[in-house]
Design a protein around this nucleic acid. Structure first.
Lengths: 215, 215
DNA sequence: TTATAATGTCAACACTGTTTACAAAAAAAT
DNA sequence: ATTTTTTTGTAAACAGTGTTGACATTATAA
């Protein structure tokens, strides 16, 4: 939207965010310096402080953008899905695609979320989660779940979130899986959907459900 | 073990690690400064460099200790378990307990693992994962799994790892769950074990398995 | 045109990680 | 026991950082 491309620099705030994201993805969070950002943009060290109260504020803004993009990626991925299960599967793959494409940003989002208050950060984070709950509510409406949407949501989010971290941290090599979002997402979805136990078990009692007891 | 309590300071290396962990847990990774550590221990800024090549090296050592403790916590938690399923459940709860008790250290462990090479870091990390695989192999031997140990391991680790992050980042409030390791672990285990789909589905084909099709 | 607010410069402060040359103490070698 | 060597810590310095305050400049509004 960028309603102001005037003033001294033109649009420093956005330029800072853009450069910051680039620097973050190229050199990690340690190599992200406000002074360096200013230098690259041809501006003095004090200038960024007219747009961000703090270095943390800059990072919080970056994380906020990240959450919005995460949500957008999930939405785009599930654009043509109809079934709740399809949406869940595709949404998860979108989640993994985002983490795989922006690993440092992803880590920033979940490593700083609690530190800074930053209301807009929490809003965008909650919005991303609301999308997941939506997907599961649809599954619930379609009678696909054997538990509540929130119960299933806990496992679904945990699984996809954990898989994302394992992917970007290289932990998947230990599982004998290619770190490809489509492949991992598909595998996680299938296991998640059907459970890992050979004989289905009642969620409430923990006992085998009689319907599928072996011969 | 601490075979050397002599020299100038006594045992600076261990003292540094101890103080670093305290500082990390109290003020987060941003407030962790080598100079401040030295100051607190009554030692000059250059001293730590006799024990750690780098600040990153100090952090890597810290993370290594973290992995060893993580493994120990899981082992302790499943000490009296016999069934593979019980071990899996308790191991997961141990994982969550560790993350809940040392959130900053936990984040450090999985936010720096890939950055620094640090062979000992990878060793300790792999050792922790090997424990999980062990648990699933036992499940496999007992005929409890409907898929390979590695397949199940991917989901199991993802789920517990993700749940840990959600706990320490406050994401669980959105799931309507208390952030208690035992409760979360139990819920995740049950969903994980039995799947979230109402009608069990073949892992290979994705079609409903005939054994439990509804009337 | 003038007043005002927004934006950027400049110079400084306190702090950090890190290196270098040096001193002291402990361990090893004689 | 004395000398040599290695380990450990000190001292002083360098470059770089986040951050602040007083000032200049420019765009916006009156």
């Amino acid at each position: 939207m960028s309603t102001r491309k005037d003033y001294h620099h033109g649009d420093l705030r956005d330029a800072l965010l853009l450069a910051a994201e680039k620097q973050l993805s190229e050199e990690g969070p340690a190599g992200l310096s406000l002074r360096k950002l200013g230098r690259d943009l041809g501006v003095t060290p004090g200038a960024p402080y007219r747009h961000f109260e703090d270095k943390d504020a800059l990072l919080a803004a970056l994380a906020t953008i990240g959450f919005q993009r995460l949500r957008a990626t999930m939405l785009k991925e599930q654009k043509e899905c109809v079934t709740g299960e399809e949406r869940l599967r595709s949404g998860g793959i979108g989640y993994l695609k985002f983490a795989w494409k922006h690993p440092e940003l992803f880590r920033l989002m979940f490593g700083w979320m609690p530190a800074r208050e930053a209301p807009e950060l929490h809003e965008s984070g909650d919005a991303a989660f609301a999308l997941l709950v939506d997907m599961l509510r649809q599954c619930e409406r379609e009678g696909l779940l054997r538990q509540t949407a929130l119960d299933a949501g806990l496992l679904a989010w945990s699984a996809v979130h954990g898989a994302a971290f394992l992917m970007i941290d290289g932990g998947l090599k230990l599982c004998g899986t290619e770190p490809d979002p489509e492949i991992v997402g598909d595998r996680v979805h299938r296991s998640l959907w059907s459970g890992i136990a050979r004989h289905p078990v009642s969620v409430e009692t923990g006992k085998e459900s009689p319907a599928s007891a072996p011969a």
